[in-house]
Nucleic acid binder design. Structure first.
Length: 424
RNA sequence: GUGGGCGUAGUUCAGCUGGUCCAGAACGCCAGGUUGUGGCCCUGGAGGUCAUGGGUUCAAAUCCCAUCGCUCACCCCA
């Protein structure tokens, strides 16, 4: 088979059979976030490049090698958003939404783009959903965000997940911790992988997260962030844990968890699911009290999480779980002959106008073929329109789930079908 | 950016130590078995330049090279 065109690398088509699950998950996310008070915000798919440089940090991998950047005809540098929080912050500041109240809570859902080699659970275009809570420093907000993330996964049908939690401190306690860590690592630098030796300069915290066995051995005895929090951070972290416990959300302390984006402070967490291969985090998030200021706004605390829908779908498939599909009952029209077909076309129009889901086969095939088609589509009932029935002003209704067959006057057909199929 | 695996019907795959393979199976699709009755069953049918290009050979889906594509992993993240 010679294909002239294929979808671009790292992108995928959501075919009709899958689109239904997408709709359900999207709907679930919106309705649940709504219950928690997070209102939807939709921002552009591309932004000025500088926004991401500032927001994400110039030394992050995303900025250094993963952005889809282009220049418009006016010579401005634009970038397809690699994540949604930056645009959300921009809109928050641009429209002075902070004026509407001390705490602003947003949810978002939409495509994001990163130019990197695709692999299981990682795409160049993926769908990011998440929430942001701006303006609250309260640990209860951290707990709320995490609770919402977990509730969403739970309701989506993903039961076996693991919530991993850590605190990486704030600008007050982190420098001190950082130098302690560096002192420890410098003594054993020879045992680190080449990559981590480079990290010593740029981002030593990331070494804690390295998967290389030799680094893990070094890191096992390294000082931990949680042991060097300032009193405020320690208190905050303790409160987050207490809140989570009282909400019935169990978690696993992950002292080596550090997230790859510069803007995180205090709480960081991720939710991992089994069966996902190397990319097993379905949701990641945390607190980022410095982000809004970095983007040019007033000092404003924030917490949030972001998840990838494609990854969630993979996890659901691996777990053999997922939301149940619930479709509107289908009425299938099966005309036999020219005159009945003409009537069927008009009937279908009328029925659809009244809200019935109706389909028919225009190919004028045998009744057997039409019934097979109805069955294939999962129809609830077939309306058989033959010359005989029409002559008597009637139609035959065949209920496909074993309910038998009956004749109904054409004059009351639509009302009858509505009553029978729209009641549940 | 680096490394491994793979590209055969709509789908999942078999065939790959070269020769009844100008290629098979299952599922799906179409039709018949029931001159107007689905799902199960039976029968038949359609559907593939074996990713593309080149090479080796009397002979290549099968060996070699290149290109393209997919995939997994590293890096990093959703």
């Amino acid at each position: 088979m010679v294909l002239r065109y294929t979808a671009p690398k790292g992108t995928r088509d959501v075919l009709p059979s899958e689109a239904e699950i997408w709709q359900q998950l999207e709907g679930l996310f919106h309705s649940l976030a709504e219950l928690y008070g997070y209102r939807e915000i939709r921002t552009p798919i591309f932004e000025r490049t500088e926004l991401f440089l500032r927001g994400l940090g110039e030394v992050t991998d995303i900025v250094q090698k993963e952005m889809f950047t282009f220049t418009d005809r006016g010579g401005r540098s634009l970038t397809l958003r690699p994540e949604l929080p930056a645009g959300t912050v921009r809109a928050f500041l641009e429209h002075n939404l902070a004026e509407e109240g001390p705490v602003c809570k947003f949810r978002y859902f939409g495509p994001a783009f990163r130019q990197e080699r695709p692999q299981a659970g990682r795409y160049q275009q993926f769908t990011q959903y998440g929430v942001e809570c701006f303006g609250s420093r309260d640990p209860a907000s951290d707990a709320e965000v995490i609770d919402l993330a977990m509730a969403f996964l739970e309701r989506a049908g993903l039961a076996a997940v693991e919530l991993r939690l850590n605190s990486i401190g704030c600008p007050i306690c982190r420098p001190a911790y950082r130098s302690r860590l560096l002192a420890y690592l410098t003594a054993r630098v020879g045992e680190l992988c080449p990559l981590c030796r480079e990290r010593m300069e740029k981002n030593p915290l990331r070494i804690l997260d390295c998967k290389s066995p030799s680094c893990r051995a070094v890191v096992a005895a390294a000082p931990l962030t949680v042991e060097h929090l300032c009193p405020a951070c320690a208190e905050h972290f303790a409160a987050v844990k207490d809140y989570l416990t009282s909400l019935g959300r169990s978690f696993i302390l992950a002292p080596h968890l550090v997230r790859g984006l510069d803007y995180y402070t205090n709480t960081v967490f991720e939710v991992v699911a089994p069966g996902l291969g190397a990319q097993d985090a379905v949701i990641g998030g945390g607190r980022y009290d410095g982000l809004i200021e970095t983007c040019g706004g007033p000092p404003t605390p924030g917490v949030g999480f972001a998840g990838g829908l494609e990854r969630l779908l993979l996890a659901l498939a691996a777990a053999g779980a997922g939301p149940r599909e619930k479709r509107v009952p289908l009425v299938f029209l099966a005309p036999l002959g020219a005159a009945p077909k003409e009537l069927a076309v008009r009937l279908a129009h009328e029925m659809r106008t009244t809200g019935l889901r109706v389909d028919l086969d225009y190919r004028s095939r045998s009744l057997k073929a039409q019934l097979r088609e109805a069955d294939r589509q999962g129809a609830r009932v077939v309306v058989i329109l033959g010359e005989d029935e029409l002559a008597r002003g009637k139609a035959a209704l065949k209920w496909l789930d074993g309910g038998g067959q009956e004749e109904i006057d054409l004059s009351v057909l639509v009302a009858y079908l509505r009553e029978k199929t729209c009641s549940e």
